[in-house]
């Protein structure tokens, strides 16, 4: 190979890739309004994003999968937890996680900030990102089902009260503190438990079926 060929490879490689990338960037900007519903991107949402940055949430939690891996992803947190639970956790983490193996700092977030944060998370949850993260899609479906067909949830029974793994010491479900001692039968129960502070109605609708065909379900919150 001559020096000239080597230089040609350099320029061809660099410029072709840069051209493709810049065109894709242009197209990204054209399509972003559709994927992220920018018509709903209000000042309240932006204020919430500023709260998200102000308290450095992103260095513990991921969002869209980016950030710290120390705490759960927040992309679909609005659907997974619901507004009230997010507010409780954010305002009183020292109470909610008193017995948890992992703590969240008390950041002194005010009430208006909490509302803005929830609005932001609600907007983020609506970003059409190919149903990522995988485990949260059932909450999104449940939320949408509850919104569109509330009558389907009227006759259902209350869900059995189970403890959230990792939040209780001692008396919890087997495997709370020692997950390696879980039996396959327990896994089924864990599977249907709400995550810390999750709203029951979302979980009810999200619940898959028992082996015998019964559905785990609960009563929807009445407006």
């Amino acid at each position: 190979m001559t020096g000239k060929t080597a230089r040609l490879i350099f320029w061809l490689g660099t410029l072709s890739s840069a051209a493709i990338f810049l065109w894709m960037t242009y197209d990204f900007h054209l399509q972003t309004p559709k994927f992220t519903h920018t018509d709903k991107l209000t000042d309240q949402v932006v204020a919430g994003k500023k709260v998200w940055h102000k308290y450095n949430c992103n260095d513990c939690h991921t969002i869209l999968g980016f950030g710290g891996y120390y705490a759960p992803d927040m992309t679909k947190a609005f659907y997974r937890l619901g507004e009230n639970n997010i507010a409780s956790i954010v305002r009183h983490p020292e109470v909610i996680y008193r017995n948890s193996f992992r703590k969240m700092p008390q950041l002194g977030i005010t009430e208006p900030e909490t509302k803005q944060l929830v609005t932001f998370l609600r907007w983020v949850g609506e970003i059409e990102n190919r149903k990522w993260p995988p485990q949260d899609e059932k909450f999104v479906e449940a939320y949408k089902l509850r919104e569109s067909q509330p009558q389907k949830l009227e006759k259902v029974r209350r869900m059995p009260q189970l403890r959230t793994p990792g939040t209780q010491r001692g008396r919890g479900l087997r495997g709370d503190r020692q997950p390696h001692r879980l039996r396959p039968a327990d896994l089924g129960r864990l599977h249907h438990q709400p995550p810390i502070g999750a709203s029951r109605d979302n979980h009810a609708a999200a619940g898959r079926q028992h082996a015998d065909g019964r559905r785990y379900c609960g009563l929807p919150d009445q407006p």
């Binding site: 995988p134 939040t167 997950p179 896994l187």
Partner: peptide, 13 residues
């Protein structure tokens, strides 16, 4: 992500 048994349980393990 696959068995979907929750963030906390996974992290405890």
């Amino acid at each position: 992500r696959f068995l979907d048994i929750g963030y906390s349980t996974a992290h405890l393990t």
